[in-house]
Nucleic acid binder design. Structure first.
Lengths: 216, 216
DNA sequence: CACGGTATCACGTAAATACGTGAGATTGTA
DNA sequence: TACAATCTCACGTATTTACGTGATACCGTG
């Protein structure tokens, strides 16, 4: 760790064995000191409320009994806005990676990671990175791609896509007609075709579907 | 590398020095063989068209002269759908990370990565991961969070959010009124307030803004 | 208590939308 | 060549929307 300043860490993990193990690993370094190790979000929150320090880094289990790690993130963010939260996960687990990202997690630590990699991960966090192993990263990328890839094309023609885009941008039929040099009637017709293909019966629904499914 | 099967790789990188260096690194391993090293997307595409093999992995510079690495991705995906594409980037560079993700990149390799990490990265790709360093990962997470976090709340009241939600779902004022037991006039009034707060003048614009900025 | 914010409701009108129905022109394809 | 798809335009009408301009009522705060 190039920076020789101290980093404070807290651990939130219900499994006592893993909590102790983690604690031992962290205490190996002179540059880290663990301010607390809790077995539940609730306990960690109580402690943060009682004291007035904020840890630099929090290692928090994702699957906690009671308040889950994910539910806990917003609370932690409120009590300690600058604390970077690393989620502890088993394997390369599941969907709630998405939830955790949305809530503002700063990294992922798989539980069977060897000690030296854990230390390296802490260092990366300190450097402003968001460490995660390649499998977690894969899941994140897949999520991303799913969000931006059109679910279905609905066989919209070029003209229809063009007009749909203008509709989404909030233009009226008359305005659209002027913009692309058509009769308002023609625009009307195109929009009807769009409605048919998208199976909707109103502008709002078409706009919603277009944006949500990344049409055009 | 636990799997002892051969992996085929191609390199697309305009800087000759780095291309050669990379080639040397890869050739160290008996489990890899490099099917080609090109200085442009165009050259790589020509080669893929001419031959009928598909490499397992493609290492492609993001900032290529002519067709950029990002523009190249869709072509490559077409010619070699199963090839996993790793983007080569300088530093932890910029915004087009987003573009690359959308296009379907499977990982990021920063150019000053030491040889052993490059080999490890290849192994991770082979295991189905999407390797990237912590800084790149941070950018991805930040992007993600920006996508799902409301830009601004616009001070919508609870009632207004409720009605906005129904509007987004494509309901008419009359229907909304029936659903939440109000006079259509009241719904109309609420919607006017929503328009004022969102600074729009049409249902479509309100819907678009609501969805895009994750209101409600 | 007065005031601001919220929620409720009403009347009226001009504009926009949704949709039925029909039709000519072009273009690619079977 | 015939057919399907696309793009273009038109008339008419019922419904919906957008907005001006009111009003009453509740509630919390200064």
């Amino acid at each position: 760790m190039e920076k020789r300043r101290h980093l404070s860490v807290i651990i939130v993990e219900d499994n006592m064995f893993f909590r102790k193990t983690l604690l031992n690993v962290l205490e190996q370094s002179q540059h880290l000191h663990c301010l607390g190790a809790y077995e539940s979000c609730e306990a960690a929150i109580r402690s943060l409320k009682r004291n007035d320090w904020q840890p630099d880094i929090m290692l928090m289990d994702i699957g906690l009994p009671g308040m889950s790690g994910i539910e806990g993130i917003p609370h932690m963010k409120k009590l300690a806005p600058d604390t970077r939260i690393v989620m502890l996960t088993i394997h390369e687990d599941h969907d709630n990676i998405f939830q955790a990202i949305c809530a503002g997690a700063s990294g992922y630590l798989v539980k069977d990671t060897p000690p030296d990699e854990i230390m390296e991960l802490i260092a990366q966090i300190d450097r402003g990175g968001a460490p995660m192993n390649a499998h977690i990263a894969k899941k994140v990328l897949d999520l991303f791609q799913k969000m931006v890839t059109p679910t279905e094309s609905y066989n919209l023609t070029q003209r229809e896509k063009e007009i749909l885009k203008l509709v989404v941008d909030g233009h009226s039929n008359r305005t659209i007609a002027e913009m692309i040099f058509l009769s308002p009637h023609t625009v009307d017709t195109h929009i009807r075709h769009i409605y048919n293909k998208l199976e909707v019966h109103s502008r709002s629904s078409a706009v919603a579907k277009a944006i949500r499914e990344n049409l055009f």
